[in-house]
Design a protein around this nucleic acid. Sequence first.
DNA 1: CTGAAAGCGCTTACAG
DNA 2: CTGAAAGCGCTTACAG
Lengths: 339, 339
Amino acid sequence: MAEKQGKVTIYDVAALAGVSVSSVSRVLHGVPNVRADVRQQVEKAIEELDYVPNRTAQMLKTRRAYMLVHIVADVTLPFYITLHRRLRQEAEKRGYQMILFDADKDGPRVKRYIQQNADRVDGLICSARSVHEKLLEAFNHCGLPVVFTHDCAQDLFDACYPDPRQGAQLCMDHLLSLGHRRIAFVGSEEKDKMNCARLKTYRKVLADAGIETEDALIWREGEQMNAGYRAGMYLAGLENPPTAIYTSGDLIAAGVIQAMHDLKWDVPGEMSVTGENDLAIARDLSPALTTVTDPADAICTTVIDYLLDRVEGRYNGPPRITEKDGRELIVRGSTAKKE
Amino acid sequence: MAEKQGKVTIYDVAALAGVSVSSVSRVLHGVPNVRADVRQQVEKAIEELDYVPNRTAQMLKTRRAYMLVHIVADVTLPFYITLHRRLRQEAEKRGYQMILFDADKDGPRVKRYIQQNADRVDGLICSARSVHEKLLEAFNHCGLPVVFTHDCAQDLFDACYPDPRQGAQLCMDHLLSLGHRRIAFVGSEEKDKMNCARLKTYRKVLADAGIETEDALIWREGEQMNAGYRAGMYLAGLENPPTAIYTSGDLIAAGVIQAMHDLKWDVPGEMSVTGENDLAIARDLSPALTTVTDPADAICTTVIDYLLDRVEGRYNGPPRITEKDGRELIVRGSTAKKE
DNA sequence: CTGAAAGCGCTTACAG
DNA sequence: CTGAAAGCGCTTACAG
């Protein structure tokens, strides 16, 4: 690494400026009590030498990296990416860099990563629908503060996530108000709190409207497009198909709509469909998707608050857990009055 | 950061094992000449104390981070993610961790990141269709080896990427062999080498077949689904529409197919469509997409070879640039004989 | 084969 | 307001 040699250090700056390294360090960090001419000399020297402090040395000394890691279950899912970008922006506002880590279903790799990087990082954010107990242990063990953007932390860590009921509530109310009575449920088969709450809400809304739930109208599989596709095919094939489909996410809804296309069923004429989170794809679909927004902004600031509170030593108590509401229904072309 | 305190160090291990830190370091790094009983004592102590070496200290001393950064233009594009996962796997095989960095169209942020992290990282991989000159400068200036997975390095850096002609060649040959003569071109408006080569190849293949190119059949816009959608709408609306559409990528092709759905045109009956790279979506579409594979495996090993050659000091010469062929045509449902 | 010591590039009490 | 010195946790010639 010839290039890595010959880097200019704080000593070079001090020498050129004719002061001690202490003084250089002081102006570097904006410490107030520094004589003006010293400050100027130092600034000139820094400029001249194009000096950049060595973060590694700073880290070793201060035990602060100004670096956060966002661990994401699967970077392939656009939902996580959108979230990441907002979190990152929020972190940068507060002077921290943020790195994206793709768990990619490889728990042991995540564990290894955390272990090996605990000293070059200040805190962790974890975004996943569910996380293995072993990993939870690793989080606990690494000594880093961590906060979750989902409800999978089993109350062991700080967390902030959307009210798990609100999305389903809004969509179901909307479909009922359009006159639908046979409404299908399409969601993930995962048994996490979020998905359970969706199904429970679905059932409750129907019950409150005096409609009996039919098991045949409930399809639980993945959360990718192809799961939605299969759901759509299945529901359309029923003897007595539904007139509307509630889905737990935009990607699934996209799959459902594609199935309807292939079957030449008109959306929304013969089938209404709703999504969740208002991803970019919701607008790109045809018809554009009726969906609910994600309360992401509120969540992201709280998540970063929680994390930096601990990183910077302002809070050291038991886990804080917040459910945010603030979802909004966005009516677009995929839903219509039942004929 | 109470948690960060009290970490066990190499001194604790040495004390418990009753040897010097030098010996601990030696067994840590598998240095051969260590007495068996010393090794055992140390290993026991490490186990007992659950000791993990401080990477930051190691970095500072050795100037090696065993960390690579993959800078990606836009993590939203699945093409980059697939690439990332393969690169990462290859890097891990060789003992390096790899981090994903989302450039997200913010050149200055990338530049800042590189500057501030040059000392905690060994090398950079850059994946983008084009990169701003300022950023190229920053790459040069940071002193880190960098290699590109696209042809945008202007021969200033190591690079390895697919032969820019092969994809278009395979798809166009396929469409011609099916009897199509009016074939449209849908691609990005970017003027990078890759996209220019695609268009050139398109023209050449047609010319060789004695077919005149029509400007009206060429649509150049983005590389996302919605660009493909608009292209499809446009082409279908022509007085004399094509019978086949060559696209420069699977996402664009997906948009084209969606447009055909909306217009109730049958694919492939009334319109054949081809893609490029064989992304997951190619299989999820209906009909499934005829496309060409990406020679990613070969590219990834070469990229990591190039990078580690420099990181580890085996090579220090002028840029090495390799175009890989090895794409293969995958015929699926979206193409058919011209009636 | 092993240990004492210097040094990687910083920061930060501590004297002055 | 400023500088000398210790120390963050390692690695690595260098003696022995």
